[in-house]
């Protein structure tokens, strides 16, 4: 198993954060979404394991985008 630091710090891996219950709820409500409408990320995903996210968590991903500078994306741990 690779060291989780190596995975998280790799240039290809954007910043992944687990959203708290409160944050997730506010995010879903303000966008009128249900959890299972979000794009997914698998439980076996190396980054999910590295940040120790659990099934059903919403992960906030801050990408470096060539068009928007920084872009935020959300995925649900599936």
């Amino acid at each position: 198993m690779l060291d989780s630091k190596v995975i998280v710090n790799h240039i290809l891996v954007p910043k992944h954060e687990i959203m708290s219950k409160k944050e997730s709820k506010a995010f879903l409500e303000s966008n009128g979404l249900k959890k299972d409408q979000l794009p997914r990320i698998l439980r076996e995903d190396p980054v999910v394991k590295a940040i120790k996210a659990k099934k059903g968590d919403i992960i906030k991903i801050t990408r470096n985008s060539p068009t928007a500078g920084k872009a935020v994306y959300y995925r649900m741990v599936y």
Partner: peptide, 19 residues
């Protein structure tokens, strides 16, 4: 942090979907 492969499946398996 800068080691890169051009095999996308391999990158998925070691570094995840976002990578």
């Amino acid at each position: 942090s800068r080691v890169i492969s051009n095999d996308i499946r391999e990158i998925y398996e070691t570094l995840g979907v976002e990578a």
